[in-house]
Design a binder for these strands. Structure first.
Lengths: 345, 345
DNA sequence: TCAAGGGGCTAATACGAATTAGCTCAGGAA
DNA sequence: TTCCTGAGCTAATTCGTATTAGCCCCTTGA
């Protein structure tokens, strides 16, 4: 289709130097160990011809023959657009790039995957998962059936974000939301709050379930009150912030832990507006656009770049069969901020 | 290396259904035109087997046989790190992704390329350019020799950012810095400034040369004074901002146009600090981290996302031999801001 | 009864590299 | 002279798919 002149092949080099294609391949791969012997003279000749022609091996053919190609697939469930999404996922990608660079791998962003109902379909007709040596999966929710199938088909992959078993343990590099949420709840308690509430689903995708669990277990073990206000549905913002605020105040709640940054911001700003003292902490970087705010929120710093880099590490270990754990949970730093303050402020 | 059980192939499907591998391939590609005839029955049988086994064609083999694979390479000259760089380049990537998604292409980020002297080497021993159907090149400076070689070897590519000829016209999608800079200079003149200065190299890589040219031509044709203060070297910040400010004031300059956002910010803030009235406009999004500032700078909005998307368009046109221009210059919006004000303010 | 004319399919080959079994030849030992 | 050995190389095969020439058989027409 490109109409370009035919590329130089090993066959061409072989003809030029009067050796066989096999010899060219051997020279190219520096195979001159005990198994294979090549005279220095032949090697020179071939290398000279390679230099002259500027020959480079066709990675595609190489992969067909050798079964791997130093390509890491990157699959993002959430479409990159709208760009709020894109900003959230970018740091992961940066970490992945960083590590890929270290390892000398290329990255295949699987943008070809069709988007159905706002989510990408991993397994579909012309699925390209096999193109890469292995893949990294990114996204809040990952279809359980897809995970099971990946495991069953023994396609090497690593999920960014913890995943429950899906017919077997899922390799992942996640953030320890449960521990981080527990830490925030503990800080609130230390600041005198003894009636807390959780704003969010606290269930569903692992990342939310972990946060919810961290909250529930900590309030329970501390013996303080822990209320719960849920948004209308997965991924949707709280519709009636005023109602939530009213309910929280009615329940005597003085500190709210919000799953979604945007929801927390809205609640805090409304409380401010009304002149009510309410502490709010949010559980992660914004994935949705939040109201503009000048306030430093008490929140979590998700180690996104590190997660990306470590996902590549786990993936290569997986591909190469190196021993070691296939599941890593990275600690999440608590960002102090000014929205979680002493009870009554 | 993965030790996975052998994947299902067309051969397997063929054996299962009692047809030949060729038939399976034909069914798969929906080849039942005037050339090739297949009975509905056979097609059904094969399709059923494909559905049962969950067979998917190996993209690698497909590419080897058919000479293209719907992969677009993305090569970034500047390393992605430090992350200031990464933030600058991200919007381009988003645009590229967007368009790739529309076209059903995957993106290959060539992170395997070794970095030498702080820049990536495009042509190197185990060069993977040919893995993709074509590539997009990103970076402030692109080696002229590399461009010439790409053209000579007829490797389809598009540069993001205008490029001078390199042994032939270089396909590109650039931003029209010359026009945008001219517009800013004209605005300054309208605001009463008749002694302007350019802070930056104004030469070298095309993107800077274009800005410099826009400035020089406009001051010349307007008959106003246009001074020039250059940073120490390409890509380096202005060392002695105070010296620049002194010199500018000594020359009676009242408005400065800065190539690099960070340099402009530093200059403006220093003038503020000293209580001197000085207008400053900067010529683009920050590529280096600037001082934190609360001021809205008069600046340029580089249509990065659009540039990325259009680069993909030009590239596919190139690959498919579709007629049409291979060089596009997109307009740059001038961001009003408050740092370019009437002379004396 | 034979030729002509498809329809429906397959055999064979190409793609470019990696890999392995084995060939050839020189030199030394028996 | 024959046999062996090892160094140095090549022929042949493999990977999984796309493509094309052409085979076989059933109709139809004469």
């Amino acid at each position: 289709m490109t109409g370009a002149r035919r590329r130089v092949t090993q066959q061409d080099i072989a003809r030029m130097t009067g050796v066989s294609q096999a010899t060219v391949s051997l020279v190219l791969n520096g195979r001159s160990d005990a198994e294979v012997k090549l005279s220095a003279e032949t090697r020179e000749k071939v290398l000279r011809a390679i230099a002259e022609t500027g020959y480079v091996a066709d990675p595609i053919a190489r992969r067909l023959a050798s079964r791997h190609n130093r390509i890491i697939g990157v699959f993002t469930y959430e479409p990159v657009f709208p760009s709020a999404n894109s900003d959230f996922y970018h740091p992961f990608l940066v970490g992945i790039e960083q590590q890929a660079e270290v390892l000398g791998c290329d990255l295949l962003l699987m943008t070809s995957t069709p988007v159905v109902d706002g989510r990408r379909r991993l397994f579909h007709g012309d699925n390209r998962l096999r193109l890469a040596d292995g893949s990294i999966l990114l996204g809040r929710t990952i279809d359980r059936a897809d995970l099971a199938r990946l495991l069953a088909e023994e396609i090497p992959f690593v999920s960014i974000g913890r995943r429950d078993d899906a017919g077997g343990p899922v390799p992942y590099v996640g953030a320890d939301y449960a521990a981080a949420t527990a830490e925030i709840v503990r800080q609130a308690i230390v600041l005198g709050h003894d009636r807390l509430a959780y704003l969010g689903l606290g269930a569903g995708p692992e990342s939310w379930a972990d946060r919810g669990r961290g909250f529930r277990e900590t309030v329970a073990s501390a013996g303080v009150y822990g209320g719960h206000f849920a948004p209308p549905a997965e991924g949707e913002p709280v519709r009636d912030t005023a109602a939530v605020l009213d309910a929280a105040l009615a329940a005597g709640v003085t500190a709210v832990v919000a799953e979604e940054h945007a929801d927390g911001v809205a609640l805090y700003e409304l409380a401010r507006e009304r002149g009510v003292a309410l502490s709010v902490a949010t559980l992660g970087e914004p994935t949705r656009a939040a109201l503009p705010t000048a306030v430093e929120f008490t929140s979590l710093r998700i180690p996104r770049q590190a997660m990306g880099a470590q996902a590549v590490e786990v993936l290569t270990a997986l591909i190469e069969g190196t021993p070691g754990g296939r599941q890593r949970l990275l600690p999440c730093e608590v960002v102090p901020g000014e929205t979680l303050s002493e009870r009554g402020n």
